[in-house]
């Protein structure tokens, strides 16, 4: 495993979360093994790896939904975590409006469940900030893919998290929505005069569309293969060990672009068949 120190000056202080040799298992099969990494306040980290590599298990261990069989997940005292699930796990037929989704994660302040005017203002502020103004009374199915993603982001944000955890936020969405989501996340991550930006950890299998844009990428398959900036870790050696298939990396505008090795070969075969 190669460790690259990518901590810029602004990322100082105690880690929010630190994995110390963490292994997790479902039944007798070990899914992640001896995982070590730490998330520092204000960071934006992408975990990449093929399906079945244990990315979601890392998130579950991070959130405390799954107890490690070995090692320890250290969380900063009083850490506020918020989780945005994969859109495909959501029941879109469930009768909930946008405002009901966003308010359900907040503990009610009074015994009567109705949202108070102060709460409605607070929720509407978050919706406005995410470009969802005026949609509060819509059913969740009546939204576009990007809007749906942002509703669940809003539910996470009203918990005022220090660390935002997203599972495959761009899985199954179109290019425009992916851009939209990435920009919203970048805005949230950015420090403002009001305070630090929120730290973000996400999983993705989209190397070029998402991972290459992030400041820090962790290549993952059962354990951490490489950890650093995209230019440092998106390299053929690490990618082959992560994905189990040879890959080529080109440079475009100072960013790495990953292409599957042997894609030319495949194209040739298929075009020959067509001819």
């Amino acid at each position: 495993m190669v460790k690259v120190d990518v901590t810029p000056a602004r990322l100082a202080g105690e880690p929010l979360v630190a994995f110390e040799h963490v292994s997790c298992a479902y039944g007798s099969s070990t899914v992640i093994d001896a995982v070590d990494f730490a998330i520092i306040p204000g960071e934006f980290v992408g975990i990449v790896g093929p399906s079945g590599s244990g990315k979601t298990t890392v998130l579950r261990a991070l959130l405390g939904a799954l107890a490690p069989v070995h090692g320890k997940v250290h969380r900063k005292a009083g850490l506020r975590l918020a989780y945005v699930p994969q859109l495909e796990t959501v029941d879109w037929n469930f009768p909930v409006t946008v405002r009901e989704v966003v308010s359900m994660s907040r503990p009610s302040r009074s015994w009567w469940p109705r949202t108070t005017p102060a709460e409605i203002r607070e929720i509407d502020d978050v919706l406005e900030r995410l470009g969802l103004g005026g949609l509060a009374n819509r059913h969740i199915r009546e939204l576009s893919g990007g809007q749906q993603q942002r509703v669940f982001l809003a539910r996470a944000l009203v918990q005022k998290p220090d660390l935002l955890v997203l599972d495959e936020p761009t899985a199954g969405v179109d290019v425009r929505t992916r851009h939209e989501v990435l920009h919203v996340l970048a805005d949230l991550n950015e420090s403002t005069p009001d305070g630090d930006g929120v730290a973000i950890v996400l999983t993705t299998h989209d190397l070029n569309g998402l991972a290459a844009h992030l400041p820090r990428v962790i290549c993952f398959n059962r354990t951490v293969i490489a950890d650093g900036s995209p230019n440092e870790v998106l390299r053929p050696y690490f990618l082959e060990r992560t994905y189990g298939a040879p890959m080529e990396v080109l440079q475009h505008g100072g960013m790495p672009v990953v292409v599957e090795h042997g894609a030319d070969d495949l194209r040739e075969r298929l075009s020959r068949r067509g001819a």
Partner: peptide, 21 residues
């Protein structure tokens, strides 16, 4: 139902996220 409204809604809609919240 009135007293536990939000928790019951969260549990019913999305138990996994409710648990981590």
């Amino acid at each position: 139902v009135v007293l536990l409204y939000r928790k019951l809604l969260f549990t019913t809609f999305d138990p996994e996220v409710a648990a981590v919240s």
